[in-house]
Design a protein around this nucleic acid. Structure first.
Lengths: 210, 210
DNA sequence: TGCCATCGGAACGCCACGTGCTCTAGCCTG
DNA sequence: CAGGCTAGAGCACGTGGCGTTCCGATGGCA
């Protein structure tokens, strides 16, 4: 996380040694990895709105051409970078209590949203306005997996008799992540833990009780 | 310098008919109204993402300067135009039934979202990423009034014994509009009426029952 | 060793932004 | 009613990021 502007100045003015037409040059996976890393660094540094392809390239010590050869837009690059970085889409714990499971699942999502991935997701949500296709990608990668997490929690709760069987629907399983997402979009991160507790105790638990 | 004035002379001689420095010129409210109308027309024509200040000005037969003198950004212009156009922020009917009241309230919002205002709101949501101040404006103008609508419905229902008193919270009153908003953002409009019915029957009614 | 796909760097045209300038219409005052 | 003053229309400009293209260099591979 050293100073970006220094590096750029050197590139522009004097230091011939880092003209990488003459230096070591990466290809394939190594280059992909460097670009992903630079993308996340840039996300944390300036946020999605101010993320410029040129700066990502410069930070990755790559060329704009190399970026555009792989991704046709900023949104695709960021989506790939984030998806490549986060391990899975999270999984709720199995504590034997629906309340604890859902709260744990929400905390997992909140942790992602509060990090650089969150800044990315926020930006990607915005980008879906320009590009409806991207919305499909977002839904598939970030939204639907979340719903399944909570649906599984509810199923386990129903088996134990904690959850009324008629609550085992996609719509109800979507409520918790949707409220979280809505709060995340409508307020600046980080999402306070108190909000998660409120969602669980005021909404989800009364909603799924027998 | 002389070449510049030559060009200008040519432009003038060719385009005399549409040089509105000589035509009727509006001020004050008339100009505001024309700009708002042009903004909404442009919104329906090309959507928020492709809305350009230059095109709005041209459609309103106004100058960019007149726009920037009033609004410092596209987002402020659109927010003003929409807020100036919609009558109130909607009010739920009082049918004597919580289910019908909430459904009616949701249908009111959905009607707004499915029109040009919806395209505007969608775009403004995106813009809040660049401009956190704008988020405050959006919340004040479009979000919070909606919560109060549903809170009033729940209060009336509690008086009638339809709603448990502990459900009279801001958080619970927010659920319906938040789920609607989330659906609106995650899918292209128009929002199907079936979605509203599902929100009411699967989520809200079980949530607020005695 | 020689080939060639790929890389880094730089320059380019493009487009919208936001601003400044000039000329002019409409109102307001004396 | 005349003159002044405010504000609007139109145009041109500088700026900045986009996405492309070209060139020279490089590293993997036959």
């Amino acid at each position: 996380m050293s100073s970006v502007s220094e590096t750029r100045e050197q590139n522009q003015s004097v230091n011939v040694a880092i003209d990488h037409r003459k230096g070591p040059r990466r290809r394939g996976d190594a280059l992909y990895a460097a670009i992903f890393e630079a993308t996340l660094d840039e996300l944390t540094a300036v946020g999605y709105a101010e993320l410029k392809m040129e700066h990502v390239a410069s930070r990755a010590r790559a060329s704009k051409g190399s970026l555009y050869r792989r991704w046709s837009s900023r949104a695709e690059l960021v989506a790939d970078a984030v998806h490549h970085t986060i391990p899975g889409c999270g999984e709720a714990p199995d504590t034997g209590s629906v309340r604890e499971d859902i709260l744990g699942g929400l905390r997992g999502f909140a942790k992602l949203l509060n990090g650089p991935s969150g800044e990315a997701v926020r930006g990607l949500m915005a980008e879906t306005i320009r590009d409806p296709d991207l919305m499909e990608v977002i839904r598939t990668r970030f939204v639907e997996p979340g719903v399944n997490v909570f649906l599984n929690v509810l199923r386990r709760g129903a088996v134990r008799g904690e959850v009324r069987p008629s609550a085992l629907t996609t719509r109800i399983a979507s409520v918790a992540p949707e409220l979280l997402r809505q709060h995340f979009l409508a307020h600046r991160s980080p999402v306070p833990d108190q909000v998660l507790i409120e969602i669980v105790d005021e909404v989800i638990m009364p909603l799924v009780r027998m």
